[in-house]
Computed example of a mutant assay.
Amino acid sequence: MHHFRIDLRSDTKTIPSAAMRAAMAQASVGDEQLDEDPSVNELVARVSTLLGKQKALFLPSGTMCNLIAVLVHCRPGDEIIAADNSHLISSESAGATALAGAQIRPVPAERGIFSAEQVAIAVRPQKVNAPTTRLIHVEQTVNRGGGAIWPIDVLRDLARFSRERGLAMHIDGARLMNAVVGSGVDAKDYGDCCDSVWLDLSKGLGCPMGAVLAGSDEFIEAARRWKFRLGGAMRQAGIVAAAGLYALENNVSGLQTDHQKARRFADALSSHECVLVGNPETNLVFFEINSRRMNAAQLAHELALEGIGIGVESATLLRAVTHLDVSTANVDEAAATICRILR
Rank of each mutant, 00 (worst) to 15 (best):
R144C: 13
G145E: 03
G146I: 03
G147F: 03
G147Y: 00
I149N: 13
W150M: 07
V154M: 12
V154A: 12
R156G: 01
D157I: 04
D157R: 13
D157W: 06
D157P: 08
L158Y: 03
F161N: 08
F161I: 11
S162F: 05
S162E: 07
R163F: 11
E164W: 02
E164N: 12
R165G: 06
L167E: 02
A168D: 05
A168I: 01
M169S: 09
G173F: 01
R175P: 01
R175C: 06
L176S: 02
L176G: 01
N178R: 15
A179W: 06
A179D: 10
A179L: 10
A179G: 13
A179H: 11
A179C: 14
V180S: 00
S183W: 03
S183Q: 09
V185N: 04
K188I: 14
D195G: 11
D195Y: 10
S196E: 13
V197D: 04
V197A: 07
W198V: 00
L199W: 01
L199G: 00
L199M: 09
D200N: 14
D200A: 15
D200F: 00
L201Q: 07
S202K: 07
G204C: 10
L205Q: 09
G206Q: 12
C207Q: 05
G210N: 11
G210Q: 12
A211T: 10
L213P: 02
I220S: 01
E221G: 10
E221R: 15
A222E: 10
A222Q: 11
A223K: 08
R224W: 07
R225L: 11
R225S: 04
R225F: 00
R225V: 12
R225A: 10
W226E: 13
W226S: 04
K227M: 03
K227G: 04
G232Y: 12
G232H: 06
G232L: 08
M234A: 06
M234S: 06
R235H: 14
R235N: 08
Q236T: 14
A237W: 01
A237Q: 00
I239T: 09
A241Y: 02
A242M: 02
A243C: 11
G244T: 01
A247R: 04
A247D: 11
L248N: 04
N250M: 10
N250L: 10
G254I: 08
Q256G: 06
T257F: 01
T257A: 12
D258A: 15
K261M: 10
K261P: 09
A262Y: 13
